[in-house]
Amino acid sequence: MTKRNKIIYWVATLWLALGMTATGIVQLIKQKEEVEMMAHLGYPSYFLTILGVWKILGVVTVLIPKFTLLKEWAYAGFFFSMSGALFSHLAVGDGGKEFFGPALLLVLTVISWYFRPVERRVVTAN
């Protein structure tokens, strides 16, 4: 892995981890604005707890060494969660402000996944 790719990976991964941790905590404590947003999107408030727990577990999984298959699941979960958030905001007619956070985290997820080192990938034998 080149030095450039390693820098891209770690910058994207750390920003992704920060964003997912922050939103996970906000969801776990059921901040008033988050509860209102979930109701606006048509989801029950208990969904915040589920999302918050899985985001924090996903961050831990992505950051720790080994467990390559589990990392793939964590990246997939981040991708589904953020693309789902984008489509949810689109479905209720929200504007660009509501798209920014999920879109940024979605892009960081893809960049982190794409540039991950070989030792963090699932390698199959042919």
Results as ranks from 00 to 15, higher is better:
Ala39Ser: 06
Phe78Cys: 01
Gly19Ile: 02
Gly101Leu: 04
Val62Asp: 14
Phe79Lys: 01
Lys97Ala: 08
Gly58Leu: 09
Val123Leu: 10
His89Cys: 09
Arg121His: 04
Leu57Thr: 13
Leu48Thr: 13
Gln31Cys: 04
Val35Met: 13
Lys32Arg: 13
His89Tyr: 14
Met82Lys: 07
Ser112Val: 09
Leu106Thr: 12
Val35Lys: 14
Pro44Cys: 05
Thr23Asp: 05
Ala85Phe: 00
His89Asn: 15
Val53Asp: 01
Thr2Val: 02
Gly52Ser: 12
Leu104Asp: 08
Phe78Pro: 01
Lys32Leu: 01
Arg121Trp: 04
Lys71Gly: 15
Ser88Ala: 10
Glu72Asp: 15
Tyr43Ser: 05
Thr124Met: 12
Phe99Gly: 02
Thr109Ser: 13
Glu119Ala: 09
Ala17Met: 12
Leu14Asn: 10
Leu104Tyr: 10
Ile64Leu: 13
Leu90Thr: 01
Leu63Ser: 02
Lys66Ile: 04
Leu16Cys: 04
Lys55Ser: 03
Trp54Ser: 11
Leu108Ile: 04
Ser112Pro: 03
Phe79Gln: 05
Val60Tyr: 03
Gly24Asp: 03
Lys71Met: 07
Gly95Phe: 11
Ala22Arg: 06
Glu119Met: 04
Leu41Ala: 01
Trp10Ala: 07
Met82Phe: 14
Thr109Gln: 13
Tyr43Trp: 11
Leu51Pro: 02
Thr68Val: 15
Glu33Tyr: 11
Val92Trp: 07
Thr109Met: 11
Gln27Thr: 02
Ile111Pro: 12
Ile111Glu: 14
Val123Gln: 08
Leu70Thr: 10
Ala125Ile: 07
Lys66Ala: 10
Met82Asp: 04
Tyr46Met: 10
Trp113Pro: 09
Gly19Glu: 04
Pro102Arg: 14
Val26Ser: 03
Ile50Gly: 01
Leu14Met: 11
Thr124Gln: 09
Phe87Val: 11
Val110Gly: 01
Leu51Asp: 06
Leu69Thr: 13
Leu28Val: 00
Phe67Glu: 09
Thr68Phe: 08
Pro44Leu: 07
Leu28Asp: 05
Gly84Gln: 01
Tyr75Cys: 06
Lys97Ser: 07
Asn5Val: 10
Val107Phe: 09
Leu106Phe: 15
Ala103Ser: 15
Glu119Arg: 12
Val60Asp: 05
Ile25Gln: 01
Leu63Asp: 02
Leu86Val: 14
Val59Asp: 08
Gln27Asp: 03
Trp54His: 05
Tyr75Gln: 05
Glu34Pro: 07
Phe78Gln: 00
Met1Ser: 07
Gly42Asn: 09
Phe87Ala: 06
Val60Ser: 02
Thr23Cys: 00
Tyr43Asn: 09
Leu51Asn: 15
Met37Trp: 10
Phe67Tyr: 15
Leu63Asn: 03
Thr68Asp: 11
Val35Gln: 14
Tyr43Asp: 07
Val92Gly: 08
Thr124Asp: 06
Leu69Gln: 07
Ala85Val: 02
Glu33Met: 13
Ile111Gly: 15
Ile29Leu: 12
Lys32His: 09
Ile111Val: 15
Leu18Ser: 05
Pro102Leu: 10
Ile50Glu: 06
Gly77Glu: 07
Tyr46Ala: 08
Gly101Asn: 04
Gly101Ile: 08
Ser83Gly: 07
Leu14Val: 15
Ser83Gln: 10
His89Leu: 11
Met20Ser: 00
Ala91Gly: 10
Met1Trp: 06
Leu41Gln: 02
Leu57Ile: 15
Thr13Ser: 13
Lys55Arg: 06
